[in-house]
Design a protein around this nucleic acid. Structure first.
Lengths: 233, 233
DNA sequence: CAGTGGTCTAGACCACCCG
DNA sequence: GGGTGGTCTAGACCACTGT
């Protein structure tokens, strides 16, 4: 059961993607959308809110909802997007090698969190883009949430597996980007001395932590893009 | 005129900050908040939405609104936070030196945007933290939005000046983080060969671009933190 | 089961922008 | 002035969680 607000948001998104509404254009007014979709105005507004959250439109009082530029749309590295989704959306020729998949307790310290070690599945994967090793991903997937991970899924998209097959509701994450000297095994794999490191803690909708990831990138290939709204309160 | 939803959000924020509600706690239910603040439920929900956007709470169906961990709260480097606000919130001993303030047309290429050069004010500032030069900021402030910038304000917080004095409504930004060889003048100032670079394009509420910033950081001191929600549509 | 958040409605008044 | 988005209301029904 898709909610009306989601259906409307999806429809508008599709129309923006297809170029029916172009950057700089105004969407139809909220009242007009009300008639178009046969819902109340608050529902239309909730749909638009989703597009605002995506950074797709900007609402301007007295003018309307402006479609924003989608250049950045090609780099949704921010948000919470998995590697597979990323390169699908960007048409990169990519390949994933699973180097390790084993049981290993999660590390105690990770970012600033107060974490106690927990049983987890450890996965180390090498991402090869256009024939070049560019990224080493190291994941701890907590067994309390996912007791078992089929080897085949690790080579594929873990997110697809978690969401579609297991029905997990992945909701939010904290990320920390730094530049560091590469650990020996990473230096060897990527053939560089320094790396860009992205550490993430990923949570489910019910606030359970379920994934810790450290992602090592070749610094010359690394780009992290972000769309941010100023938070005033 | 503060809206009810903002007042409620602020009040809850204050109570969270003060420790009245702690991480892991549940906020009062929406109906209860309704009575507490004497508003309709939708208004309460809009207030909660702000807190969700801030990454302060997570709503869980059937359970309630859970207060999230605030470790990351100390690092609102993501979002859209100015340097001054940052070190105020973190108690760093920081100092800003204005190296250049002059008229200079904005660069044509910046990130991926289609930009034509425009008249702008160029500001180069050196940020010194605990006696150590850590960051070089280079800003282009478009003259179409801010014709003139007093020298004194540049040493202070530009954002405070723009928002409080000029009444500008700074709304959103795109950022790109990379790791690069330092330009000569930056290498000299920071005494490093490589730097973390953050390029931002900042927009007003009415979608006008008004600021282009390139920020060079000593890589060993650099940290970029991000709170992201998974965008499903 | 009671309590929670998620969705939706059909009004209303206001602040703002633009021609 | 006419159109836009921002706020707010007082209901309603549903889906989910916990005990």
């Amino acid at each position: 059961m898709e909610s009306k607000q989601r259906l409307i948001a999806k429809d508008l998104l599709a129309k923006i993607k297809s170029g029916q509404y172009r950057p700089g254009d105004l969407l139809p007014g909220e009242v007009q959308l009300t008639e178009l979709y046969g819902t109340s105005r608050e529902t239309v507004r909730k749909a638009l809110r989703h597009l605002v959250d995506l950074g797709l439109i900007q609402k301007v009082r007295g003018r309307g909802s402006v479609v924003l530029n989608l250049d950045r749309y090609k780099f949704p590295i921010s948000g919470l997007t998995s590697f597979k989704e990323l390169n699908a959306s960007q048409g990169l020729n990519a390949e994933t090698k699973v180097l390790v998949l084993e049981e290993r307790p999660s590390p105690e310290y990770f970012m600033t969190a107060e974490l106690t070690s927990e049983p987890a599945t450890f996965i180390r994967r090498l991402r090869i883009i256009n024939g070049e090793p560019d990224v080493v991903d190291e994941d701890f997937i907590l067994k309390s949430v996912v007791p078992e991970i089929p080897l085949g899924e690790a080579a594929n998209s873990l997110y697809r597996y978690f969401e579609d097959d297991l029905g997990l509701d992945i909701s939010y994450a904290t990320k920390l980007v730094t530049f560091e000297k590469a650990p020996q095994h990473v230096a060897k794999l990527l053939q560089v001395a320094s790396v860009a490191v992205v550490r993430s803690m990923v949570y489910l909708q019910d606030t359970r932590l379920f994934q810790l990831t450290t992602s090592y990138h070749r610094p010359d290939k690394f780009e992290f893009s972000d769309f941010a709204r100023r938070q005033k309160l």
